[in-house]
Each structure stands twice: as structure tokens, then as C-alpha cells.
Nucleic acid binder design. Structure first.
Lengths: 218, 218
DNA sequence: GTCTATAAATAGATAGAC
DNA sequence: GTCTATCTATTTATAGAC
């Protein structure tokens, strides 16, 4: 997938995978999301992609390299989308809103994104190569830049960028990744747990983040 | 561990595990946190606990049952600690602060808690048995009760309990679980990423949550 | 690019002696 | 409670034909 679709700034609608490489990439993303790196099986990936197992090693050299490529694709996409914000002319509050929206959009375009990110954090980032780590750092830096811009314009109070980042990414990933768990909670009497909507979740996180930075009132 | 330490309301300092059962429980928690359920190996668990592998099946019947027991212990502890808040006489804002503190304390007492919870969410909650699911539901309901109490007293505005919950648990788990990843970000130029302190993180999340509920200003 | 066959290691789990 | 030995299935990965 990354070869076929490099950095792009518009909504990432990916076509049905054609080549065996693309089919393997898509099947692997699903398998890694569902079972984690250690739990994933190259046999299952190949079977799901309807491709011979040996093709995984032909196209990607190893299970680990395939997994690293999926990680790179995830953060490259977010980094590319978010980079445009730095140079944009809109005011800082709208940049915060756009940042939240960007994370949500990329997470939604890749159902494997939230679970894989959760698992990779739990793995201590063992599989993050230099390139991918740089992409993640760039994302946090963009957010830090927006906060600094708002502080300089006396619109925001100074808050550590990593705190702002955690306040956005934590709840957002939790929402996208927890669909199944929320269904179980609904069955156990947590009313409405299975009926959260993307729109209201994103709006809430935008409000809370701006409240933290501006001081609420509204 | 659950057998030896049932529900308790004070800081959970656990003694060095003595019995083979306790050593296996502790070693398994570490292994599942580091590698996930599918990636964990009963051989490694037994080796780390310096206990014969067959003892795992003697004490816990299966790898899955052992894992479920660890999950139960985690949420039983949080549920027990948080249950006291419902019946407490302090005002709603202090209850919110105590709720955040409770999650942080239990997460800190069990380094395996944040990674295992992230992984289990990614697994779709496949291993959550009825008892554990009930504990999690109870935790969310306690938070819902605190919010409702504040709304009735005209101190809080109505916010969906699951939104409040995600705003607390998302960032908090992210902080505890991301130590290694944050080290990597520090190396890549994200200043201070590896020097966040528990105290300031908890204080920030308390402020943000109360700001969301009360309307900030301060 | 695609396939079969297979190597070599490791997985979870159990039987049965002590 | 603890141990050794072992069964069976599955793991990642590669060699080599087409």
C-alpha cells in the first residue's frame, strides 16, 4: 500500500487491493490488529489474502518487516495530513479542531490503526523504526507549534504539548478501539455505551481540548 | 494474588510472592503485559517464576484461565476502590478528583495493568468473563453517579459518563503505558517527553475533567 | 511471481512417577 | 505439590521447481 499510495493530503479512500502485495498488506493489517505482532500468524495472513505464504517473504522479507511497514504507513499518513496545518493561515483554535479531525479521519480510514497503536505502545515501541519514530515526533511537534502559536497570540495558556496530545489521542483511540468492549458494557447495563457516534465524540474532544487551552466558560 | 489479597481499600503494596501460585501469577502478569495473550508463552512464564511448567496447569488449568484471573484481579481492585466513593459524603468535585487518583493508584500498583488493558481492548474484550465485565461496568456506573449528583446540585453540566471516563482513562493509561515510546520521542527531539511526572499528569487530568464538567474559567 | 515441500524450533497441554 | 518426559500442532522461514 505505501508504495502505491505515498504521502497524500486528501481523504484516503483505498481501492480494493489488487496485487498480491496489496492483498497481503491489507490482510496483515487486519491480522496484526486482531492478534498483535507475536500472536499474528503468517499462515493466516496468507490464507486471508488468498496468496501463497512464500509470497510474504518474497514481497516483505519477514513477518517483522511486514509489520514495520504497516506501522510506517499509519504514521506517515497522519504526519503528512497534519504537516499542512503548520503552514496554514487559519487561527490556532481552528488548527486544534483540524488536528483532532485529522487523527479521527486517519484512524477511521484504517480500522487497524487504533488497535495496532495500542498494542505497539504496550510493546514499548519495539518495532518502531527510525523513520516511523520521526513521523510520530513530527506529529507531536506540529501540535506543540499550534499551542505555542496560540500562547504567543494570547489566546491559549501554556500547556505541555504531550498533555494536549494525550488528551486528544487517548480518548480518540479508546473510542475507535473499544467498540466490542462497549457492546459488552451495554449488555451489563451501561446505557448508551454501544451508541456513541463519531461526530459527537470528535466534537466533545475538540471542545475539551480548546477548553483546556482557552479556559472554557462557554 | 487475588486469593491472598481480596478486595481492599488501602494502597495495594504487594509483598514479594512466596508460593509457587503467587510467583506464577506475578510472572504471568509481566509476560502478558510484555507480549500479549497470544504472544505469551507458558514456558517463559514458568521459567521466570522459577516454577515447573506443569504447575501452571495444576494451579490454573490453562493459559487462558490464568490470563482471565489476572484481568479479574485488575478490575476487581479498581471497582472495590471506587465503590467507596459512591457512598462517601464529600462533594462531587472532590469525588471526581478521587476517582482520577484511584485509577492512577491502581494502575501504578500494577505495572502490567495499562499494557494489558490496552491489549485486551484491542482483542475486543475476548477474555473478559462475566465477573470482570461486571466490575468494569460498575466502575463506569460509579462515575455516572458522580456526574448525576453534580448535575442535580447544579455544579456540573450534563456530560455523557463514557465521555468523562474516556477523558480520564485514555490519557492516564497512555501516560503509564508509554514510558518506552516517550523515551524514543525524547531522542527524536520531543523535549521533555521522558520527564513527565505522575503528580503533574494526575493534576492535569483532574483539572481538565473538572473543567469539562464545571466550565473552567480558572 | 507463484508454487510445493520441508526444515527446525516452539507452542499448549497431559500422563504418570514421586 | 512438584517433577520428567512426551504428544501433537503450529510456528517462521527457506530451498528449489516451474
Amino acid at each position: 500500500m505505501p508504495r502505491a499510495h505515498p504521502a497524500r493530503s486528501v481523504a484516503p479512500r483505498r481501492p480494493a487491493p489488487r496485487s498480491s502485495r496489496e492483498r497481503l498488506f491489507a490482510a496483515a493489517a487486519t491480522e496484526f490488529a486482531a492478534r498483535g505482532f507475536a500472536g499474528a500468524s503468517v499462515d493466516r495472513i496468507a490464507r486471508a489474502a488468498r496468496v501463497n505464504k512464500a509470497m510474504i517473504y518474497y514481497h516483505f522479507t519477514s513477518k517483522a518487516a511486514l509489520y514495520r511497514e504497516i506501522l510506517r504507513d499509519m504514521f506517515e499518513a497522519v504526519s503528512a495530513r497534519v504537516a499542512g496545518l503548520s503552514r496554514s493561515a487559519i487561527d490556532p483554535a481552528d488548527k486544534i479542531r483540524a488536528f483532532v479531525e485529522a487523527i479521527a479521519t486517519e484512524a477511521e480510514a484504517r480500522p487497524h490503526f487504533p488497535p495496532i497503536w495500542f498494542r505497539e505502545i504496550a510493546d514499548g515501541g519495539r518495532h518502531l523504526d527510525a523513520q516511523t519514530t520521526a513521523h510520530i515526533a513530527a506529529i507531536v511537534k506540529v501540535l506543540g507549534g499550534i499551542v505555542a502559536e496560540g500562547v504567543a497570540a494570547k489566546r491559549f495558556r501554556p500547556v505541555k504539548p504531550l498533555f494536549v496530545h494525550a488528551g486528544i489521542v487517548g480518548p480518540l483511540l479508546l473510542y475507535f478501539a473499544s467498540t466490542e468492549v462497549r457492546k459488552r458494557l451495554e449488555e451489563r447495563g451501561v446505557a448508551g455505551a454501544d451508541r456513541l457516534e463519531r461526530r459527537e465524540v470528535v466534537a466533545h474532544i475538540q471542545r475539551v481540548t480548546l477548553g483546556t487551552l482557552e479556559g472554557f466558560t462557554s
